[in-house]
């Protein structure tokens, strides 16, 4: 197992890619803190890991609140004594409205900044003091293949997440903390299927990916395991595209 005795927080862990992250981290031996704005769902998912013999807790967090991300970090240290990893996966994605930029309401833009961008920063700030004290830690921020060709407020904020990754990797690197970014492409989740019809998804996969394959959440989670593990001990400040070759294959 690659993550024996590691303690890792996953935000947005109650569903989709975040849940797959939590399951993969558990499979590799980590104790997992499943954090989600849907606290009960997070606790239910944590309960499944515990029932399978693993270590996990569920906590409610609104990542746009510094007080709540700080409480998430405290709950982790209280339960497991340290923080080895943070996966900043939570974001506004499911059901978001596809405005054009010209018609995007300013309040809606600010909401995406507060959650998808500032939420990632607040997560990192919440765990940084503990990781600095330990002299080690890994933060993985989740971006999107869409950030390479931003179309709307979602992909613009996901580009910002890549910038935050570089900046945090710079400021935390000398203290032994690695910061990297996962950029998934078309991934088979309930949220993605809510945004696109089956026909649209097939067309995107056929026309835009080199592997002609939609990623499953588990495909993304396996790369996350590598980034969190000591196998990636010399990797920081990187954007890792996990997207069937979507970005490598501009339409």
């Amino acid at each position: 197992m690659l993550l024996q005795d590691k303690v890792v927080i996953v935000t947005g862990a109650a569903q989709g890619i975040g849940r797959a992250h939590a399951e993969a981290l558990h499979r590799e031996g980590a104790a997992v803190v499943l954090a989600d704005i849907q606290g009960e769902a997070a606790e239910a998912e944590a309960g499944k890991i515990v029932a399978a013999g693993g270590k996990a807790i569920g906590v409610r967090v609104d990542i746009s609140s510094a007080a709540e991300t700080a409480a998430m970090a405290r709950a982790t240290v209280d339960a497991f004594g340290r923080i080895d990893g943070l996966v900043n996966n939570a974001a506004i994605y499911a059901g978001y409205v596809h405005h054009t930029l010209v018609d995007l309401p300013p309040d809606y833009w600010q909401r995406f900044v507060d959650v998808n961008l500032t939420g990632v920063l607040l997560g990192a700030q919440a765990v940084a003091p503990q990781m600095i004290e330990q002299g080690s830690g890994v933060i993985v921020n989740q971006s999107s293949a869409g950030a390479d060709q931003p179309r709307n407020q979602y992909s613009v904020t996901k580009l910002g997440v890549q910038g935050l990754t570089l900046g945090l990797a710079r400021s935390l690197g000398p203290q032994g903390v690695r910061v990297n970014c996962l950029a998934p492409g078309v991934t088979d989740t309930e949220a993605t299927r809510g945004h696109y019809s089956a026909e649209q998804l097939t067309a995107m996969v056929e026309q835009r990916t080199l592997l002609r394959k939609m990623a499953q959440p588990e495909d993304v989670a396996d790369v996350l395991v590598w980034l969190v593990s000591d196998l990636a001990r010399i990797v920081t400040g990187q954007i890792v595209h996990v997207d069937s070759g979507y970005v490598a294959h501009p339409a």
Partner: peptide, 12 residues
């Protein structure tokens, strides 16, 4: 980071 968002808006 803020100016990187401008590059995103540029493309969008």
């Amino acid at each position: 980071v803020a100016e990187l968002l401008v590059h995103g808006f540029t493309v969008g």
